[in-house]
Nucleic acid binder design. Structure first.
Length: 417
RNA sequence: CGGGGUGUGGUGUAACGGCUAACAUGCUUGUUUUGGGUACAAGUGACUCCGGGUUCGAAUCCCGGCUCCCCGACCA
């Protein structure tokens, strides 16, 4: 798109009420707007980033058999009462409201109960299993203290998947498959090397859980990792017994600060027993279904990436999630140069390359600074100076490497990687 | 929820209890400039978070509330 048509503006200074790097950068570059503590609007650029993250996750969930749906945000009190999870003493992040017609409702912070209830209408035989469903949805959590910009919010986008399996083996197989799929997601999101599966306690409602933790200074967790052995464990299970079980010594572990970017739970059959989701087996016996729950914090990942991949000039988006692959910049009064830039803009678009064309009538310094701040993977400058050096200038944002390329070869250059 | 801070044009900051709340930036207009937020000029823009109190006089002091940030707690 043309930058002159983008309504958002960049700013030199971050608002005084934001101290986290991720929110500062995302606000300055025009990706998000703060609505209130822990609640952010996604601006056009932000929507593109979130959609890119969602698309990667969507592809990987579909690849392991996930079916996408979308549950409501408003939830019924009755459903949560059956599992004792309506009470604020049990779940302390509820947002609740009252219906004018009478009765209470909740704003969804998770969907295990509603989706299990809904599945009662569709699952009745062992032949119906397994079923894997997922959604991208705004979750509401009444956090006592929102913090760190996009890292811990009160309203945020989450991918949540639920597995309904016939038995423990079937459940376990999918659970492992999901771990692999999650690894693929994080790799494509650009944080694969810094993301570790860690064994963690399951809390009061599950038997056990695994967390996906990404090394990030702004994170809230601390884990112990051994990169060579691929071992990672949460502080809460860091003890002699676990170390012995994993065959790793204390001095082989590195303590790192991390942000939780995913979490998966095994509910066993407990939830379905509580909620009365049973199917008939071959012999006609009613057996409870195994439930698993798998989350990825989509908007949190946006924050983690902005936080991790940035320098003193701005954001450095990984290629697969950048809102645009190319930031096309031109300056000077030379009309031929501008026309050449415009032609390249159309050529890139026609080649299916996402491009942001800075066609604004402002000075070069502002354009270059904006390009650095906004963080597209490639900046292409069309100018007289570049033309003298042999074409257009292509700068890779992540490395700063500069190449001068014949305008006719730009698309080939980009697609060759 | 405990503790600590904060609140002034869109944004970032300044102002002893005392002149018309100042400066920068942004935005508008004109000239200028075109490889790192160019320069000049003229404009624009604020119930100083809300409510009470003290005082001849409050952005400034006091009380209450709210907001946002940080530390801790919490995090299915």
């Amino acid at each position: 798109m043309k930058q002159s048509e983008l309504f958002t503006k960049t700013r030199k200074e971050a608002p005084a009420d934001e101290t986290s790097k991720n929110a500062e950068l995302l606000i300055r570059a025009g990706y998000i707007h703060k609505e209130m503590a822990g609640v952010y609007d996604l601006l056009p650029l932000g929507v593109k980033v979130v959609e890119n993250i969602k698309e990667i996750v969507r592809q990987e969930m579909n690849a392991i058999g996930g079916q996408e749906l979308m549950m409501s945000s408003l939830q019924s009190k009755d459903i949560w009462t059956t599992t004792q999870r309506w009470d604020d003493d049990v779940v302390d992040v509820w947002f609740k409201s009252e219906l004018k017609a009478g009765g209470e409702i909740g704003f969804g912070w998770s969907h295990e109960e509603p989706i299990t209830e809904m599945m009662k209408n569709h699952l009745s035989s062992y032949k119906d299993l397994p079923v894997y469903v997922y959604q991208f949805q705004n979750k509401f959590r009444n956090e006592l203290r929102a913090k760190s910009g996009m890292m811990r919010g009160r309203e945020f986008v989450m991918k949540d998947m639920y597995s309904f399996s016939l038995d423990a083996e079937q459940h376990e197989a999918f659970y492992q498959k999901t771990i692999d799929a999650y690894h693929r997601c994080y790799r494509r999101l650009g944080i694969g090397n810094d993301t570790f599966v860690t064994f963690a306690t399951g809390g009061a409602f599950t038997e056990f859980s695994h967390e996906f933790q990404t090394i990030c200074e702004a994170g809230e967790d601390e884990i112990y990792i051994n990169r060579e052995k691929g071992i990672a464990l949460n502080q809460e299970v860091y003890n002699e017994k676990t170390l012995k079980d994993l065959d790793v010594a204390e001095n082989e572990l590195e303590k790192v600060r991390t942000a939780e970017v995913g979490n998966i739970f095994n509910f066993g059959t407990r939830k379905c027993e509580e909620m009365d989701l049973y199917v008939n087996d071959e012999a006609g016996n009613r057996i409870p279904v195994h439930l698993g729950s798998y989350g990825i914090g989509v908007t949190r990942i946006m924050g983690v990436i902005a936080e991790k991949f940035s320098d003193d000039k701005g954001i450095v988006w990984p290629e697969e999630i950048a809102p645009f692959t190319v930031h096309l910049v031109t300056f000077g009064k030379n009309e031929n140069i501008f026309r050449e830039a415009e032609n390249l803009y159309h050529d890139l678009k026609n080649a299916g390359i996402e491009v942001l064309f800075d066609d604004r009538d402002i000075g070069p310094g502002q354009k270059l600074n904006d390009a650095d701040l906004m963080g597209m993977p490639y900046r292409i400058v069309v100018s007289e100076k570049a033309a003298e050096k042999g074409g257009v200038e292509i700068t890779k944002r992540s490395t700063g490497d500069i190449e001068f390329v014949d305008p006719a070869r730009v698309i080939a250059h980009l697609t060759e990687g």
